[in-house]
Design a protein around this nucleic acid. Structure first.
Length: 477
RNA sequence: GGGGCGGUAGCUCAGCCGGUCAGAGCAUCGGACUCAUAAUCCGUGGGUCGUGGGUUCAAGUCCCACCCGCCCUACCA
Protein backbone atom coordinates (compact mmCIF):
# COMPACT_ATOMS: atom_id res chain seq x y z
CA UNK A 1 0.00 0.00 0.00
CA UNK A 2 1.26 3.43 -0.97
CA UNK A 3 -0.06 5.97 1.53
CA UNK A 4 0.33 9.69 1.16
CA UNK A 5 -0.68 12.77 3.06
CA UNK A 6 -1.10 16.11 1.39
CA UNK A 7 1.99 18.27 1.54
CA UNK A 8 1.11 21.45 3.43
CA UNK A 9 2.44 24.80 2.34
CA UNK A 10 4.89 26.06 4.87
CA UNK A 11 3.89 29.66 5.44
CA UNK A 12 3.48 28.80 9.12
CA UNK A 13 4.21 26.11 11.65
CA UNK A 14 2.17 22.92 11.74
CA UNK A 15 -1.07 22.81 13.70
CA UNK A 16 -3.24 20.03 15.05
CA UNK A 17 -5.08 19.59 11.76
CA UNK A 18 -1.85 18.55 10.09
CA UNK A 19 -1.21 16.19 12.96
CA UNK A 20 -4.58 14.53 12.38
CA UNK A 21 -3.83 13.65 8.79
CA UNK A 22 -0.32 12.49 9.61
CA UNK A 23 -1.46 10.29 12.46
CA UNK A 24 -4.27 8.77 10.42
CA UNK A 25 -1.82 7.95 7.66
CA UNK A 26 0.57 6.54 10.21
CA UNK A 27 -2.06 4.21 11.62
CA UNK A 28 -2.81 2.87 8.16
CA UNK A 29 0.87 2.40 7.47
CA UNK A 30 1.56 0.60 10.72
CA UNK A 31 -1.57 -1.51 10.48
CA UNK A 32 -0.73 -2.81 7.05
CA UNK A 33 2.93 -3.32 7.86
CA UNK A 34 1.92 -5.35 10.89
CA UNK A 35 -0.03 -7.62 8.61
CA UNK A 36 3.04 -8.15 6.53
CA UNK A 37 1.98 -6.04 3.57
CA UNK A 38 4.55 -3.88 1.82
CA UNK A 39 3.94 -0.26 2.74
CA UNK A 40 5.36 3.03 1.63
CA UNK A 41 4.24 6.03 3.68
CA UNK A 42 4.95 9.34 2.01
CA UNK A 43 4.62 12.90 3.29
CA UNK A 44 6.42 16.22 2.96
CA UNK A 45 5.98 19.92 2.39
CA UNK A 46 4.94 22.19 -0.45
CA UNK A 47 7.68 24.79 -0.49
CA UNK A 48 6.81 26.42 -3.78
CA UNK A 49 3.56 28.11 -2.91
CA UNK A 50 3.24 31.83 -3.47
CA UNK A 51 1.81 32.02 0.01
CA UNK A 52 5.20 31.13 1.36
CA UNK A 53 6.69 34.07 -0.48
CA UNK A 54 4.13 36.44 0.96
CA UNK A 55 4.52 35.10 4.48
CA UNK A 56 8.25 35.61 4.24
CA UNK A 57 7.80 39.15 3.00
CA UNK A 58 5.41 39.88 5.84
CA UNK A 59 7.87 38.45 8.34
CA UNK A 60 10.75 40.28 6.77
CA UNK A 61 12.87 37.18 6.25
CA UNK A 62 14.20 35.60 3.09
CA UNK A 63 11.82 33.07 1.56
CA UNK A 64 14.43 30.36 1.73
CA UNK A 65 14.90 30.90 5.42
CA UNK A 66 11.19 30.89 6.28
CA UNK A 67 10.53 27.83 4.15
CA UNK A 68 13.47 25.93 5.60
CA UNK A 69 12.48 26.76 9.15
CA UNK A 70 8.84 25.79 8.79
CA UNK A 71 9.54 22.70 6.73
CA UNK A 72 11.86 21.58 9.52
CA UNK A 73 9.01 22.03 11.99
CA UNK A 74 6.81 19.73 9.91
CA UNK A 75 9.48 17.11 9.50
CA UNK A 76 10.20 17.49 13.20
CA UNK A 77 6.75 16.12 14.05
CA UNK A 78 8.11 12.69 13.31
CA UNK A 79 9.44 12.14 16.81
CA UNK A 80 6.74 13.81 18.89
CA UNK A 81 3.92 12.12 16.99
CA UNK A 82 5.77 8.81 16.54
CA UNK A 83 5.30 8.91 12.79
CA UNK A 84 6.73 6.15 10.64
CA UNK A 85 6.82 7.80 7.24
CA UNK A 86 9.30 6.28 4.83
CA UNK A 87 10.10 9.45 3.00
CA UNK A 88 9.62 13.16 3.42
CA UNK A 89 9.71 15.24 0.27
CA UNK A 90 10.25 18.96 0.05
CA UNK A 91 9.24 20.32 -3.31
CA UNK A 92 12.00 22.93 -3.29
CA UNK A 93 14.86 20.63 -2.39
CA UNK A 94 14.03 17.11 -3.57
CA UNK A 95 16.38 16.63 -6.51
CA UNK A 96 13.94 14.68 -8.63
CA UNK A 97 10.95 16.93 -8.02
CA UNK A 98 11.61 19.76 -10.42
CA UNK A 99 12.70 17.34 -13.06
CA UNK A 100 9.55 15.28 -12.49
CA UNK A 101 7.27 18.30 -12.75
CA UNK A 102 8.92 19.26 -16.00
CA UNK A 103 8.51 15.72 -17.27
CA UNK A 104 4.75 15.63 -16.61
CA UNK A 105 4.48 19.06 -18.14
CA UNK A 106 5.96 17.72 -21.35
CA UNK A 107 3.89 14.54 -21.21
CA UNK A 108 0.70 16.60 -20.98
CA UNK A 109 1.88 19.01 -23.66
CA UNK A 110 -0.82 17.86 -26.05
CA UNK A 111 -3.39 19.23 -23.59
CA UNK A 112 -1.66 22.54 -22.90
CA UNK A 113 -2.25 25.79 -24.72
CA UNK A 114 -1.71 29.49 -24.13
CA UNK A 115 -4.54 31.86 -23.44
CA UNK A 116 -4.87 35.38 -22.20
CA UNK A 117 -6.48 35.37 -18.84
CA UNK A 118 -7.89 38.09 -16.72
CA UNK A 119 -9.39 37.53 -13.33
CA UNK A 120 -9.36 38.10 -9.63
CA UNK A 121 -6.82 35.99 -7.85
CA UNK A 122 -6.81 35.15 -4.17
CA UNK A 123 -3.29 34.43 -3.00
CA UNK A 124 -4.68 32.80 0.13
CA UNK A 125 -6.50 30.18 -1.92
CA UNK A 126 -4.07 30.12 -4.85
CA UNK A 127 -7.15 30.29 -7.00
CA UNK A 128 -9.08 32.59 -9.32
CA UNK A 129 -12.57 33.82 -8.57
CA UNK A 130 -15.01 35.51 -10.93
CA UNK A 131 -15.83 38.10 -8.31
CA UNK A 132 -14.76 39.09 -4.87
CA UNK A 133 -14.48 38.77 -2.06
CA UNK A 134 -12.66 35.52 -1.48
CA UNK A 135 -15.19 33.05 -0.04
CA UNK A 136 -12.69 31.82 2.54
CA UNK A 137 -12.34 35.29 3.94
CA UNK A 138 -8.62 35.58 3.43
CA UNK A 139 -7.45 38.98 4.46
CA UNK A 140 -5.36 39.84 1.45
CA UNK A 141 -7.57 41.51 -1.18
CA UNK A 142 -8.12 39.77 -4.49
CA UNK A 143 -5.65 40.85 -7.12
CA UNK A 144 -6.72 41.89 -10.58
CA UNK A 145 -4.48 39.77 -12.74
CA UNK A 146 -4.15 40.00 -16.48
CA UNK A 147 -1.63 37.79 -18.15
CA UNK A 148 -0.91 35.19 -20.75
CA UNK A 149 -1.06 31.77 -19.09
CA UNK A 150 -0.87 28.13 -19.96
CA UNK A 151 -4.15 26.26 -19.81
CA UNK A 152 -4.84 22.57 -19.40
CA UNK A 153 -7.70 20.93 -21.30
CA UNK A 154 -9.48 19.62 -18.27
CA UNK A 155 -12.75 19.71 -20.18
CA UNK A 156 -11.53 16.83 -22.30
CA UNK A 157 -11.48 14.47 -19.30
CA UNK A 158 -14.95 15.06 -17.97
CA UNK A 159 -16.43 11.77 -19.15
CA UNK A 160 -13.38 9.72 -18.24
CA UNK A 161 -13.32 11.16 -14.75
CA UNK A 162 -17.00 10.57 -14.23
CA UNK A 163 -16.70 6.95 -15.29
CA UNK A 164 -13.62 6.44 -13.19
CA UNK A 165 -15.19 7.74 -10.01
CA UNK A 166 -18.71 6.41 -10.41
CA UNK A 167 -17.38 2.95 -11.19
CA UNK A 168 -15.26 2.95 -8.05
CA UNK A 169 -12.00 2.44 -9.92
CA UNK A 170 -11.03 5.63 -8.17
CA UNK A 171 -12.62 5.23 -4.78
CA UNK A 172 -13.53 8.36 -2.87
CA UNK A 173 -14.52 8.07 0.76
CA UNK A 174 -16.79 8.93 2.49
CA UNK A 175 -19.55 8.40 -0.07
CA UNK A 176 -20.90 11.90 0.43
CA UNK A 177 -17.61 13.25 -0.85
CA UNK A 178 -17.71 11.00 -3.86
CA UNK A 179 -21.15 12.32 -4.71
CA UNK A 180 -19.91 15.83 -4.28
CA UNK A 181 -17.13 15.25 -6.77
CA UNK A 182 -19.44 13.52 -9.23
CA UNK A 183 -21.84 16.45 -9.08
CA UNK A 184 -18.99 18.80 -9.76
CA UNK A 185 -17.74 16.80 -12.72
CA UNK A 186 -21.21 16.31 -14.14
CA UNK A 187 -21.84 20.04 -14.01
CA UNK A 188 -19.14 20.49 -16.61
CA UNK A 189 -15.42 21.07 -16.40
CA UNK A 190 -13.70 24.17 -17.71
CA UNK A 191 -10.10 24.22 -18.73
CA UNK A 192 -7.85 25.42 -15.95
CA UNK A 193 -4.95 27.80 -15.85
CA UNK A 194 -1.81 25.93 -14.87
CA UNK A 195 0.87 28.60 -14.91
CA UNK A 196 1.50 32.00 -13.37
CA UNK A 197 3.72 34.83 -14.37
CA UNK A 198 7.15 34.40 -12.85
CA UNK A 199 7.20 38.07 -11.96
CA UNK A 200 4.06 37.78 -9.88
CA UNK A 201 5.51 34.72 -8.15
CA UNK A 202 8.64 36.75 -7.33
CA UNK A 203 10.64 34.15 -9.20
CA UNK A 204 9.68 31.47 -6.67
CA UNK A 205 8.57 28.12 -8.05
CA UNK A 206 9.36 25.93 -11.03
CA UNK A 207 9.72 27.68 -14.42
CA UNK A 208 7.55 26.39 -17.22
CA UNK A 209 9.71 24.38 -19.62
CA UNK A 210 10.43 26.58 -22.61
CA UNK A 211 8.68 29.60 -21.12
CA UNK A 212 10.80 31.07 -18.31
CA UNK A 213 8.42 34.01 -17.95
CA UNK A 214 5.94 31.61 -16.36
CA UNK A 215 6.11 29.32 -13.37
CA UNK A 216 4.14 26.11 -12.99
CA UNK A 217 0.91 26.53 -11.03
CA UNK A 218 1.63 25.51 -7.49
CA UNK A 219 -1.10 22.88 -7.38
CA UNK A 220 0.23 21.21 -10.48
CA UNK A 221 3.64 21.33 -8.87
CA UNK A 222 2.44 20.05 -5.49
CA UNK A 223 0.27 17.21 -6.78
CA UNK A 224 3.20 15.87 -8.73
CA UNK A 225 4.96 15.14 -5.45
CA UNK A 226 3.06 11.88 -5.16
CA UNK A 227 5.11 10.51 -8.00
CA UNK A 228 8.24 12.65 -7.96
CA UNK A 229 8.84 11.48 -4.39
CA UNK A 230 9.16 8.03 -5.95
CA UNK A 231 11.80 9.32 -8.35
CA UNK A 232 9.63 8.67 -11.34
CA UNK A 233 12.54 9.44 -13.64
CA UNK A 234 13.93 6.03 -12.86
CA UNK A 235 15.35 4.05 -10.01
CA UNK A 236 12.68 1.49 -9.27
CA UNK A 237 10.56 3.15 -6.59
CA UNK A 238 8.14 4.63 -9.07
CA UNK A 239 7.76 1.37 -10.89
CA UNK A 240 7.21 -0.49 -7.63
CA UNK A 241 4.87 1.93 -5.87
CA UNK A 242 2.99 3.77 -8.59
CA UNK A 243 2.86 1.30 -11.45
CA UNK A 244 2.73 -2.11 -9.80
CA UNK A 245 1.27 -1.32 -6.39
CA UNK A 246 -2.45 -2.23 -6.38
CA UNK A 247 -3.40 0.08 -3.53
CA UNK A 248 -2.50 3.78 -3.65
CA UNK A 249 -4.25 5.95 -1.10
CA UNK A 250 -4.26 9.72 -0.76
CA UNK A 251 -5.38 11.22 2.54
CA UNK A 252 -6.66 14.73 2.03
CA UNK A 253 -8.60 17.43 3.86
CA UNK A 254 -12.04 18.40 2.63
CA UNK A 255 -10.78 21.71 1.32
CA UNK A 256 -8.64 20.17 -1.38
CA UNK A 257 -10.84 17.42 -2.79
CA UNK A 258 -11.19 18.97 -6.19
CA UNK A 259 -7.46 19.15 -6.75
CA UNK A 260 -7.03 15.52 -5.80
CA UNK A 261 -10.16 13.96 -7.22
CA UNK A 262 -10.42 15.95 -10.44
CA UNK A 263 -7.29 17.84 -11.47
CA UNK A 264 -4.78 15.23 -10.39
CA UNK A 265 -6.41 12.22 -12.06
CA UNK A 266 -6.89 14.32 -15.20
CA UNK A 267 -3.22 15.24 -15.21
CA UNK A 268 -2.29 11.60 -14.91
CA UNK A 269 -4.71 10.52 -17.63
CA UNK A 270 -3.26 13.15 -19.91
CA UNK A 271 0.28 12.03 -19.12
CA UNK A 272 -0.63 8.40 -19.66
CA UNK A 273 0.26 7.48 -16.11
CA UNK A 274 -1.44 5.12 -13.65
CA UNK A 275 -3.94 6.62 -11.24
CA UNK A 276 -4.33 6.49 -7.47
CA UNK A 277 -6.88 3.95 -6.27
CA UNK A 278 -8.45 5.71 -3.30
CA UNK A 279 -8.87 9.13 -1.78
CA UNK A 280 -9.96 9.49 1.82
CA UNK A 281 -11.33 12.89 2.71
CA UNK A 282 -11.26 13.95 6.33
CA UNK A 283 -13.05 16.94 7.75
CA UNK A 284 -11.52 19.64 9.91
CA UNK A 285 -10.70 20.19 13.53
CA UNK A 286 -11.68 23.22 15.49
CA UNK A 287 -10.04 24.27 18.75
CA UNK A 288 -12.30 25.46 21.54
CA UNK A 289 -15.08 25.83 19.01
CA UNK A 290 -13.10 28.04 16.69
CA UNK A 291 -11.37 27.52 13.42
CA UNK A 292 -7.75 26.62 13.94
CA UNK A 293 -5.51 29.46 12.92
CA UNK A 294 -2.09 30.85 13.69
CA UNK A 295 -3.57 32.77 16.58
CA UNK A 296 -4.94 29.66 18.24
CA UNK A 297 -1.81 29.38 20.30
CA UNK A 298 -0.65 26.29 22.08
CA UNK A 299 -4.00 24.54 22.06
CA UNK A 300 -3.50 23.71 18.44
CA UNK A 301 0.26 23.21 18.44
CA UNK A 302 0.88 19.48 18.28
CA UNK A 303 4.46 19.73 19.48
CA UNK A 304 3.42 21.75 22.52
CA UNK A 305 0.62 19.31 23.31
CA UNK A 306 3.01 16.41 23.12
CA UNK A 307 5.40 18.18 25.47
CA UNK A 308 2.57 18.72 27.93
CA UNK A 309 0.73 15.41 27.68
CA UNK A 310 2.87 12.98 25.74
CA UNK A 311 2.67 11.34 22.36
CA UNK A 312 0.17 8.69 23.35
CA UNK A 313 -2.34 11.15 24.77
CA UNK A 314 -2.29 13.30 21.63
CA UNK A 315 -2.50 10.39 19.22
CA UNK A 316 -5.21 8.81 21.28
CA UNK A 317 -7.37 11.90 21.22
CA UNK A 318 -6.98 12.25 17.46
CA UNK A 319 -7.85 8.63 16.84
CA UNK A 320 -10.44 7.92 19.50
CA UNK A 321 -12.43 11.11 19.32
CA UNK A 322 -12.39 12.40 15.75
CA UNK A 323 -15.34 11.05 13.76
CA UNK A 324 -15.01 9.79 10.21
CA UNK A 325 -17.50 12.36 9.04
CA UNK A 326 -17.91 15.84 10.42
CA UNK A 327 -15.68 18.36 12.08
CA UNK A 328 -14.45 17.66 15.58
CA UNK A 329 -13.76 20.16 18.31
CA UNK A 330 -10.53 19.87 20.22
CA UNK A 331 -10.19 21.02 23.79
CA UNK A 332 -7.40 20.33 26.19
CA UNK A 333 -9.95 19.22 28.76
CA UNK A 334 -11.18 16.46 26.46
CA UNK A 335 -7.68 15.34 25.69
CA UNK A 336 -6.94 15.12 29.40
CA UNK A 337 -10.18 13.28 30.11
CA UNK A 338 -9.45 10.74 27.38
CA UNK A 339 -5.91 10.23 28.52
CA UNK A 340 -6.87 9.78 32.17
CA UNK A 341 -9.92 7.63 31.69
CA UNK A 342 -8.71 5.46 28.86
CA UNK A 343 -4.95 5.37 29.16
CA UNK A 344 -4.25 5.77 32.86
CA UNK A 345 -7.37 4.30 34.48
CA UNK A 346 -8.17 1.82 31.75
CA UNK A 347 -5.10 0.42 30.07
CA UNK A 348 -2.40 1.50 32.52
CA UNK A 349 -4.25 0.28 35.53
CA UNK A 350 -5.09 -3.01 33.85
CA UNK A 351 -1.49 -3.78 33.05
CA UNK A 352 -0.47 -2.65 36.49
CA UNK A 353 -2.92 -4.89 38.32
CA UNK A 354 -2.21 -7.89 36.12
CA UNK A 355 1.55 -7.61 36.46
CA UNK A 356 1.28 -7.05 40.18
CA UNK A 357 -0.85 -10.15 40.66
CA UNK A 358 1.58 -12.23 38.68
CA UNK A 359 4.37 -10.95 40.90
CA UNK A 360 2.46 -11.36 44.13
CA UNK A 361 0.77 -14.68 43.57
CA UNK A 362 3.10 -16.40 41.13
CA UNK A 363 6.39 -14.86 42.09
CA UNK A 364 6.54 -13.16 38.69
CA UNK A 365 6.31 -16.32 36.64
CA UNK A 366 3.80 -16.13 33.81
CA UNK A 367 1.67 -19.27 33.47
CA UNK A 368 2.31 -21.43 30.45
CA UNK A 369 -1.29 -21.61 29.33
CA UNK A 370 -3.72 -18.93 28.29
CA UNK A 371 -5.56 -17.36 25.38
CA UNK A 372 -6.60 -13.75 24.86
CA UNK A 373 -10.14 -12.98 25.95
CA UNK A 374 -11.27 -11.70 22.60
CA UNK A 375 -10.38 -11.37 18.98
CA UNK A 376 -10.57 -7.86 17.57
CA UNK A 377 -8.36 -8.11 14.53
CA UNK A 378 -11.26 -8.50 12.13
CA UNK A 379 -13.15 -5.51 13.45
CA UNK A 380 -10.08 -3.30 13.35
CA UNK A 381 -9.37 -4.42 9.84
CA UNK A 382 -12.89 -3.70 8.63
CA UNK A 383 -12.98 -0.30 10.28
CA UNK A 384 -9.66 0.76 8.82
CA UNK A 385 -10.68 -0.49 5.39
CA UNK A 386 -13.24 2.28 5.44
CA UNK A 387 -10.94 4.75 7.14
CA UNK A 388 -12.98 4.74 10.33
CA UNK A 389 -10.18 5.33 12.80
CA UNK A 390 -12.47 6.00 15.70
CA UNK A 391 -14.33 2.72 15.28
CA UNK A 392 -11.04 0.88 14.95
CA UNK A 393 -9.65 2.43 18.11
CA UNK A 394 -12.85 1.62 19.95
CA UNK A 395 -12.60 -2.00 18.87
CA UNK A 396 -9.13 -2.30 20.36
CA UNK A 397 -10.45 -0.72 23.52
CA UNK A 398 -13.04 -3.42 24.03
CA UNK A 399 -10.11 -5.66 24.97
CA UNK A 400 -9.21 -3.36 27.85
CA UNK A 401 -12.78 -3.31 29.06
CA UNK A 402 -13.21 -7.05 28.77
CA UNK A 403 -10.01 -7.65 30.65
CA UNK A 404 -10.98 -5.33 33.49
CA UNK A 405 -14.36 -7.03 33.74
CA UNK A 406 -12.70 -10.41 33.70
CA UNK A 407 -10.54 -9.46 36.68
CA UNK A 408 -13.63 -8.61 38.71
CA UNK A 409 -15.33 -11.79 37.63
CA UNK A 410 -12.45 -14.17 38.28
CA UNK A 411 -11.12 -12.41 41.37
CA UNK A 412 -7.74 -14.12 41.18
CA UNK A 413 -6.87 -13.06 44.75
CA UNK A 414 -9.59 -15.38 46.01
CA UNK A 415 -9.01 -18.25 43.65
CA UNK A 416 -7.27 -21.53 44.30
CA UNK A 417 -3.71 -21.68 43.00
CA UNK A 418 -4.82 -23.74 40.01
CA UNK A 419 -7.65 -21.37 39.07
CA UNK A 420 -5.37 -18.46 39.58
CA UNK A 421 -2.82 -19.81 37.14
CA UNK A 422 -5.51 -20.07 34.51
CA UNK A 423 -7.03 -16.64 35.02
CA UNK A 424 -3.70 -14.85 35.19
CA UNK A 425 -2.55 -16.72 32.11
CA UNK A 426 -5.60 -15.44 30.29
CA UNK A 427 -5.01 -11.90 31.50
CA UNK A 428 -1.36 -11.80 30.55
CA UNK A 429 -2.16 -13.17 27.09
CA UNK A 430 -4.88 -10.55 26.71
CA UNK A 431 -2.47 -7.78 27.63
CA UNK A 432 0.03 -9.10 25.14
CA UNK A 433 -2.64 -9.19 22.47
CA UNK A 434 -3.50 -5.64 23.43
CA UNK A 435 0.07 -4.58 22.84
CA UNK A 436 -0.06 -6.12 19.40
CA UNK A 437 -3.39 -4.54 18.46
CA UNK A 438 -2.45 -1.21 19.92
CA UNK A 439 0.82 -0.82 18.06
CA UNK A 440 -0.60 0.95 15.00
CA UNK A 441 -2.48 3.41 17.19
CA UNK A 442 -0.13 3.99 20.12
CA UNK A 443 3.28 2.56 19.29
CA UNK A 444 4.88 3.91 22.45
CA UNK A 445 2.19 2.58 24.75
CA UNK A 446 2.23 -0.75 22.98
CA UNK A 447 5.94 -1.10 23.60
CA UNK A 448 5.52 -0.30 27.28
CA UNK A 449 2.68 -2.77 27.70
CA UNK A 450 4.75 -5.32 25.92
CA UNK A 451 7.67 -4.74 28.23
CA UNK A 452 5.49 -4.92 31.34
CA UNK A 453 3.91 -8.28 30.49
CA UNK A 454 6.55 -9.64 28.16
CA UNK A 455 8.77 -12.65 28.36
CA UNK A 456 10.75 -13.52 31.43
CA UNK A 457 9.94 -12.93 35.06
CA UNK A 458 7.59 -10.03 35.62
CA UNK A 459 8.23 -7.28 38.10
CA UNK A 460 5.89 -4.70 39.55
CA UNK A 461 5.72 -2.08 36.82
CA UNK A 462 5.88 1.65 37.22
CA UNK A 463 2.65 3.35 36.11
CA UNK A 464 2.51 3.24 32.33
CA UNK A 465 0.62 6.50 32.00
CA UNK A 466 0.56 9.58 34.19
CA UNK A 467 -2.74 11.03 35.29
CA UNK A 468 -3.10 14.63 34.26
CA UNK A 469 -6.11 15.74 36.29
CA UNK A 470 -6.57 15.35 40.02
CA UNK A 471 -9.34 12.86 40.78
CA UNK A 472 -11.49 15.53 42.38
CA UNK A 473 -11.10 17.75 39.36
CA UNK A 474 -11.92 15.16 36.78
CA UNK A 475 -14.67 16.13 34.36
CA UNK A 476 -14.92 19.62 35.64
CA UNK A 477 -11.96 21.00 33.78
C1' G B 1 -29.82 30.32 -6.21
C1' G B 2 -28.60 24.89 -6.62
C1' G B 3 -26.60 20.50 -4.10
C1' G B 4 -24.78 17.88 0.24
C1' C B 5 -23.96 16.79 5.49
C1' G B 6 -25.39 17.34 10.56
C1' G B 7 -29.21 18.83 14.51
C1' U B 8 -30.87 11.88 19.44
C1' A B 9 -30.13 12.10 27.53
C1' G B 10 -26.04 17.86 31.10
C1' C B 11 -21.52 16.66 27.56
C1' U B 12 -19.49 13.57 23.27
C1' C B 13 -21.87 10.53 20.18
C1' A B 14 -24.17 4.90 18.16
C1' G B 15 -28.64 3.88 15.86
C1' C B 16 -27.81 -0.03 7.86
C1' C B 17 -32.83 -1.69 4.20
C1' G B 18 -39.29 1.58 8.94
C1' G B 19 -41.71 -2.68 13.74
C1' U B 20 -37.23 -4.67 21.75
C1' C B 21 -34.48 2.11 18.60
C1' A B 22 -35.28 5.06 22.64
C1' G B 23 -29.12 3.35 23.28
C1' A B 24 -23.41 3.73 24.81
C1' G B 25 -19.52 6.43 27.21
C1' C B 26 -18.54 10.49 30.49
C1' A B 27 -20.81 13.38 34.40
C1' U B 28 -24.74 12.36 38.79
C1' C B 29 -26.48 9.04 42.54
C1' G B 30 -26.36 4.08 45.07
C1' G B 31 -23.83 -0.52 45.81
C1' A B 32 -19.59 -4.14 45.47
C1' C B 33 -14.50 -5.10 45.77
C1' U B 34 -9.38 -4.47 47.42
C1' C B 35 -5.19 -7.24 42.62
C1' A B 36 -4.36 -2.05 40.84
C1' U B 37 -2.21 4.66 39.10
C1' A B 38 -8.33 6.57 45.38
C1' A B 39 -7.89 2.84 39.93
C1' U B 40 -11.88 -1.27 38.85
C1' C B 41 -16.80 -3.74 38.56
C1' C B 42 -22.33 -3.67 39.06
C1' G B 43 -26.82 -0.90 39.22
C1' U B 44 -30.16 3.84 39.27
C1' G B 45 -31.93 8.44 37.45
C1' G B 46 -32.24 11.39 33.02
C1' G B 47 -34.39 12.44 26.38
C1' U B 48 -41.90 15.28 23.26
C1' C B 49 -34.91 11.57 18.92
C1' G B 50 -34.49 20.44 15.63
C1' U B 51 -40.00 22.31 14.30
C1' G B 52 -44.63 21.46 11.65
C1' G B 53 -47.21 18.45 8.44
C1' G B 54 -47.74 13.72 5.49
C1' U B 55 -47.39 8.27 4.10
C1' U B 56 -48.10 3.64 7.00
C1' C B 57 -51.20 -1.23 11.03
C1' A B 58 -46.28 0.90 12.68
C1' A B 59 -41.26 6.50 11.80
C1' G B 60 -35.12 9.33 15.02
C1' U B 61 -35.67 5.46 10.83
C1' C B 62 -39.47 7.22 4.43
C1' C B 63 -41.79 12.06 1.92
C1' C B 64 -42.66 17.62 2.02
C1' A B 65 -41.89 22.40 4.25
C1' C B 66 -39.36 25.32 7.66
C1' C B 67 -35.44 26.71 11.52
C1' C B 68 -30.20 26.28 13.13
C1' G B 69 -24.85 24.85 12.14
C1' C B 70 -21.28 23.46 8.51
C1' C B 71 -19.48 22.21 3.51
C1' C B 72 -19.42 22.28 -1.88
C1' U B 73 -21.05 25.02 -6.05
C1' A B 74 -23.11 29.16 -8.68
C1' C B 75 -24.00 33.85 -9.31
C1' C B 76 -29.92 35.02 -12.62
C1' A B 77 -31.52 40.85 -11.07
Amino acid sequence: MYITTTIPYVNARPHLGHALELVQADVLARHHRRRGEPVRFQTGTDDNSLKNVLAAEAAGVPVRELVDRNAAAFEGLRGPLALSFDSFIRTSTHPAHREGVERIWRETGHDLYQRHYEGLYCVGCEQFYPEGPCPDGHEAPLQRVSEQNWFFRLSRYQDDLYALISSGRLRIEPAARRNEVLAFVAAGLDDISVSRSAARARGWGIPVPGDPAQVVYVWWDALANYITALNDGGGGDYERWWVREPSKVHLVGKGVIRFHAVYWPAMLLSAGRPLPTAIFVHDYLTADGRKISKSSGNAADPAALVRAYGTDAVRWWLLREVPRVGDADFTEARLVARADEDLANGLGNLVSRVATMVVRFLDGHVPEEGEPLAEVDGVVDAALAEFDFRRAALAVWTLVEEANRYVELARPWQQSPREREASLGTLVRTCRELAVQLEPFLPGAAARVSAAVGAGRLTRPEPLFPRHARPAARGTA
